[in-house]
């Protein structure tokens, strides 16, 4: 067990280190998020709708698209110089590789998701108020579900001729519950309702995230085997 955790930590640390040295993915996703927010400003008639009404949906869709941008690159670096074969040949169990990869993606996407919330607060004067802690929890659960399915299906789509263009077709239908429950809980927070009202959707989101994560770590071996 300790060995297993150590293997996960090694791969996770490697990914984080590469990313924090180059900052390629974070910069791309961060810039994407800010630019999307700027474009949303011009795509919306703010005289007719107030930010609270539609912000929860916009936040979640921005997270989805930014996530697509980041998760799609999970295996690119290693695929280019054949290093992924090395990882697969090493005596690390396949599910440990998946968990490490998904956690690395989780760290990046979670940072970006918080940036999304920050950008919306900054640009559109969103009132998050007292439920900020719960909001970060909901976003963490949603992001966890996203990276679990995203990492699994990135491994699938990298092996195809279509590459990253296939990824949204594969994961968007599966992620409908994340958008529905995530947006539901978020809009209740933004409307200033008590946290207990969003409890049901938070619980469903947690169940979905855990299921997706276990599914991913179980099925990943079938995707990468040769």
């Amino acid at each position: 067990m300790r060995n297993y955790l150590k293997q996960i930590r090694t791969i996770l640390w490697k990914d984080l280190l590469v990313e924090f040295r180059t900052r390629e993915r974070l910069i791309a996703m961060g810039a994407f998020v800010v630019l999307v927010a700027i474009l949303f400003n011009y795509a919306t008639d703010w005289a007719r709708v107030s930010p609270e009404d539609i912000a929860s949906g916009l936040v979640w869709m921005t997270i989805m698209f930014a996530g697509l941008l980041g998760v799609g690159r999970t295996f690119h670096l290693e695929a280019e110089d054949g290093a992924f074969q090395g990882i697969l040949l090493s005596p690390v169990p396949k599910d440990a590789i998946f968990i490490a990869k998904a956690l690395a993606n989780f760290v990046f996407l979670y940072i970006v998701a918080l940036l999304v919330v920050g950008v919306f607060i900054f640009f559109f004067g969103l009132e998050v108020g007292g439920s900020f802690g719960m909001l970060t929890l909901v976003i963490a659960l949603g992001v966890l579900a996203f990276v679990a399915l995203g990492t699994l299906f990135t491994a699938v789509s990298t092996g195809t001729r279509m590459g990253d263009t296939l990824l949204p077709v594969l994961i968007f239908p599966l992620l409908a519950p994340v958008v529905i429950y995530g947006t539901g809980a978020t809009s209740q927070f933004l409307a200033g309702r008590p946290v207990t009202e969003a409890e049901g959707s938070i619980r469903m989101l947690a169940a979905f995230a855990l299921t997706a994560f276990f599914l991913g770590s179980w099925l990943f071996r079938f995707v990468v085997e040769d």
Binding site: L152, V156, I180, G184, L219
Partner: peptide
């Protein structure tokens, strides 16, 4: 096959969420 399995196991969640929506 992986797509089909994940899809099938995702159905209960999608079903519940669209009803809830």
């Amino acid at each position: 096959a992986v797509v089909a399995i994940v899809g099938a196991l995702d159905i209960p969640f999608i079903h519940l969420s669209v009803i809830w929506f």
